[in-house]
């Protein structure tokens, strides 16, 4: 696979390390009354979709950016790649 890094252009996916669903960026509030259940869902449950999937890749053999990659799990087509830091900041 090739991931089009938003800053560096196309790079072989073997330079990257995969983590999983981009929802892992949404760490729950540890002070919430439902924190135990919130963290269980956050850490363990997945949509695991057939089709479009927003997921986290780390450019370990590159610039060490975490990226949010939108990729189709059936065709592997990638339609969007963002810097995770920018996504995280825009979500705040």
């Amino acid at each position: 696979m090739i991931i089009h890094h938003p800053l560096l252009g196309p790079r072989d996916a073997s330079e990257f390390v995969y983590l999983g669903d981009a929802s892992l960026m949404n760490r729950p509030n540890p002070k919430s009354e439902t924190a135990a259940e919130d963290f269980h869902r956050y850490q363990y449950l997945r949509d695991n979709p057939v089709g479009q999937h927003r997921e986290l890749w780390y450019h370990e053999q590159g610039d060490r950016s975490w990226l949010v990659v939108t990729r189709n799990t059936l065709t592997h087509d990638i339609t969007k790649v963002e810097l995770a830091r920018d996504v995280a900041r825009s979500q705040k």
Partner: peptide
């Protein structure tokens, strides 16, 4: 994941 989603369930599973 796909089949259990039809029953509204999210699983501790990735494919």
């Amino acid at each position: 994941g796909r089949v259990m989603a039809m029953a509204g369930m999210r699983l501790p599973i990735e494919s």
